[in-house]
Design a protein around this nucleic acid. Structure first.
Length: 552
RNA sequence: GCCCCAGUAGCUCAGUGGAUCAGAGCAUCGGACUUCUAAUCCGUGUGUCGUGGGUUCGAGUCCCACCUGGGGUACCA
C-alpha cells in the first residue's frame, strides 16, 4: 500500500472517530491531499487538510489539526511513523520511522524486479497506440520522441497495475502511400531505362532511390510494373521503420493494418452505422459526418467526391475497432501536437457510434525542432531535410536518446541541438545514472572476491544520514510510478532516477562497504543496501527502456 | 479571428494551491584520486517565475486580459 493512501486512511478514520465522539460536526470531505514537504524538517509527508477545513468548520486550523492528530489511531500509525506533529499554520506532519524504513530494504530484496509495482484489484485493459507513422519515409527525431514516450509510458502503466497492449497503426492505404509508391517507381523506371515522371509533391529523399535500387538489384532479370512494386516498396519501408524502432529499444505487441479495415468490411459497417443513425449526409457528391450535432464547429467529410475515404473516416473505423470490436476499457493515443485539431472531432465521431468519448485519451507531445548552431532546421520528409531517428541513435546511442526524450515533459517544446548530440558528450545525465549502477556492481564484485556475504547483514545498523536518505528514496518508487502513469508523464521517473543516483554516489563517497577497518557485519549490511539500490535503479532503467551496465 | 502548448538562473529544463518554494543539471572558477570505478565528490552565485489585474488565510501553480514564440484551424495525414 502506498504511504499516501495509508495516511489518507489514518486521517479519514480520525475524522470518523471525531464525528462519533461528537468532537467535530459532520462535514463533507472530497479529497485529502498528501504532500511531500520540500524541507524534511517538516516531515516526510504532510497534510494541509485543516487549513482547507477552516471555512467549513469556522474554526482555527491549528485547533482542527490538533483534534485530528489526537484522534489518529496510534497503534496503526506507529507501524510506519515515528511521530506525527502539528505545525503552524495548520499542517499535520508525518515522520517515517527509521525502523519501518529499514524494513523496506528486506521488501525490496524480496520483491526484486517487481518492487514498486502496484497491484490493482480491477486492472483495466488499456491499449496504447503510438508512432503509427505512414510507411512513406524513415522516422525522424520527432517520431523518436513519440516512440520513446509511448514505450516508456506503456511499461510504467503496466507497473501501475493495468494490462497494456502496444500498437502501431500502419497507414497502408490512401493517397500518401500512392505518392510514395509512384516516387519509388519513378526512380526505379530510370534504372530500367523507362521514363516515369516524379509525381507532383512526390517524396524526394535519398531513401527513395535506395529502395528503388534495392528492388532493381533483387529483380535483375525482370522489369516490374508499378503494381508489382507497391507491396515490395511498402514492405521495405516498414522493415526499415521496424528496425529503427528496435534500435531505439521500442517494440510493439501488435501492428494493425489500415487496409484490413476494408477487407474485413469494418469500414463499411462503420459508414453504414453513421447512415443508419442519420449522423451522415450527402452533399456535393461527398458523404459528411454531421459533426455539428456533437458540438463541432463544422461538419467533416467522410467520403470524398472521388469516392476515396478520408483519413478521418478510416481513423473512426479504426477506433471503432478498438472499442467496439476489441473492447478496450481505455485507449491512449500518442500524437504530435500538430494533430491536435483532430482530437475533438475524433471523439465526437466516437460518441456518434456509441463510444464514451472519455475512454479515448490523447497524449500530445510538443514538436521537436532541430537546431544547428544558431540555425533552426525545419524537418520535412518530402524535401528530404530530415534528421532520422537512426542518425540520432548512431550519434548519441539509444540510452542517451531515450533519457533525453523521457526527461522532458511532453508539453515542453524541444529544440534538438544537433551539435550537442554529435559531441557524444558526457554532459548527459544518462551516464551519471548508469555509472551509479555500474559502481554498485563493482562493489558486489569486490565483495564476492573478499568473501563478504550480504545475508549476514543487520538492517538495524543502517542509520547514518546517507544510508537513511537512500532507503527513504527507495520507498518513493511506487509513488513515482503512480504519478507518471496517472498523468502520462514519464519525466517524473527520469528525475527520480537522477536523484536516486545522486544519493548513491553520495553514499559511495561517504560510506565504505568493504573496509578492513570495520566489522564484517557493517560490510554485509551495506552490501544489502547496495543490492537494494541495484534493484531500484534497475527498475527505473527498465521502465525507461535503458540498459543496465554492470561495468563502464 | 478561433483552439492548443510554452515563457522560471548565462543555457537546458523540474516544480501535485501550501510552510525556507525560488529548484536541478550544465556552463564558470577553486579543491579532493596509494581508495569498493574521479563518467565521482566538496565548495563557489545567479532570479521583477513574460506583463497587468483578480480569487484565496496562502498563487510560479487557479481565473481574466494582454505580450512573445511554436503548432493547429483541408474533400492532406
Amino acid at each position: 500500500m502506498l504511504i499516501r493512501d495509508y495516511i489518507k486512511e489514518l486521517i479519514l478514520e480520525s475524522i470518523n472517530s471525531c464525528h462519533k465522539n461528537g468532537i467535530l460536526p459532520i462535514f463533507e470531505i472530497d479529497q485529502i491531499e498528501v504532500e511531500r514537504p520540500q524541507n524534511t524538517d517538516n516531515g516526510d509527508f504532510a497534510v494541509s487538510l485543516p487549513l482547507k477545513l477552516t471555512k467549513v468548520l469556522k474554526s482555527n486550523p491549528l485547533e482542527i489539526a490538533n483534534t485530528l492528530t489526537t484522534y489518529i489511531d496510534n497503534e496503526k500509525a506507529n507501524i510506519v511513523f515515528d511521530k506525527i506533529l502539528v505545525a503552524p499554520p495548520g499542517f499535520i506532519n508525518f515522520y517515517l520511522s527509521q525502523n519501518w524504513v529499514q524494513k523496506q530494504l528486506e521488501e525490496i530484496l524480496k520483491s526484486g524486479k517487481d518492487y514498486g509495482n502496484i497491484t490493482k484489484i480491477n486492472p483495466k485493459n488499456i491499449q496504447i497506440e503510438f508512432v503509427s507513422v505512414n510507411p512513406t519515409g524513415p522516422l525522424h527525431v520527432g517520431h523518436a520522441r513519440g516512440a520513446v514516450l509511448g514505450s516508456s509510458l506503456a511499461s510504467i502503466i503496466q507497473a501501475s497495475g493495468d494490462i497494456v497492449s502496444k500498437e502501431y497503426y500502419i497507414n497502408d492505404a490512401g493517397n500518401q502511400i500512392d505518392l510514395f509508391v509512384q516516387s519509388v517507381y519513378s526512380k526505379y523506371s530510370t534504372l530500367i531505362g523507362h521514363e516515369y515522371p516524379m509525381p507532383e509533391n512526390g517524396y524526394m529523399g535519398d531513401y527513395i532511390e535506395d529502395i528503388a535500387q534495392e528492388i532493381h538489384d533483387e529483380n535483375n532479370s525482370r522489369k516490374l510494373n508499378e503494381k508489382e512494386i507497391k507491396p515490395i516498396a511498402l514492405d521495405k519501408m516498414l522493415s526499415n521503420i521496424r528496425l529503427d524502432l528496435l534500435n531505439l529499444n521500442v517494440e510493439f505487441d501488435n501492428w494493425f493494418s489500415e487496409k484490413s479495415l476494408f477487407t474485413s468490411g469494418e469500414f463499411d459497417d462503420t459508414m453504414n452505422q453513421f447512415k443508419k443513425d442519420q449522423h451522415s449526409f450527402s452533399e456535393n457528391n461527398a458523404i459528411w459526418f454531421k459533426a455539428t450535432d456533437f458540438g463541432e464547429e463544422k461538419d467533416h467529410v467522410l467520403i470524398r467526391t472521388n469516392l476515396e475515404p478520408t483519413y478521418y473516416a478510416t481513423d473512426i473505423a479504426y477506433h471503432r475497432n478498438k472499442f467496439l470490436i476489441r473492447k478496450y476499457d481505455k485507449v491512449i493515443d500518442i500524437w504530435g501536437a500538430d494533430h491536435h485539431g483532430h482530437i475533438s472531432r475524433l471523439k465526437s465521431a466516437l460518441e456518434a457510434i456509441g463510444v464514451d468519448r472519455s475512454k479515448l485519451n490523447i497524449l500530445l507531445y510538443q514538436l521537436v525542432s532541430l537546431k544547428q548552431g544558431d540555425d533552426k532546421v525545419r524537418a520535412s520528409k518530402r524535401a528530404g531535410t530530415i534528421i532520422t531517428t537512426n542518425e540520432l541513435v548512431e550519434e548519441v546511442g539509444s540510452d542517451a536518446c531515450r533519457y533525453f526524450f523521457i526527461s522532458r515533459s511532453p508539453d515542453s517544446h524541444m529544440d534538438f541541438d544537433i551539435d550537442l548530440a554529435q559531441k557524444k558528450s558526457s554532459d548527459n545525465p544518462v551516464f551519471y545514472i548508469q555509472y551509479a549502477h555500474a559502481r554498485a556492481f563493482s562493489i558486489l564484485k569486490s565483495a564476492a572476491d573478499e568473501g563478504i556475504k550480504s545475508n549476514k547483514g543487520n538492517i538495524a545498523l543502517l542509520g547514518n544520514e546517507h544510508e537513511i536518505n537512500l532507503l527513504k528514496k527507495f520507498t518513493e518508487l511506487s509513488e513515482i510510478i503512480q504519478i507518471s502513469a496517472d498523468r502520462y508523464e514519464p519525466h517524473h521517473l527520469a528525475k527520480y532516477s537522477l536523484e536516486l543516483a545522486t544519493l548513491f554516489h553520495l553514499f559511495y563517497q561517504n560510506c565504505r562497504v568493504i573496509d578492513e577497518k570495520q566489522s564484517n557485519e557493517i560490510s554485509s549490511t551495506r552490501l544489502k543496501l547496495v543490492g537494494g539500490f541495484i534493484t531500484v535503479i534497475g527498475k527505473c532503467l527498465d521502465l525507461m527502456g535503458m540498459s543496465k551496465p554492470e561495468s563502464m
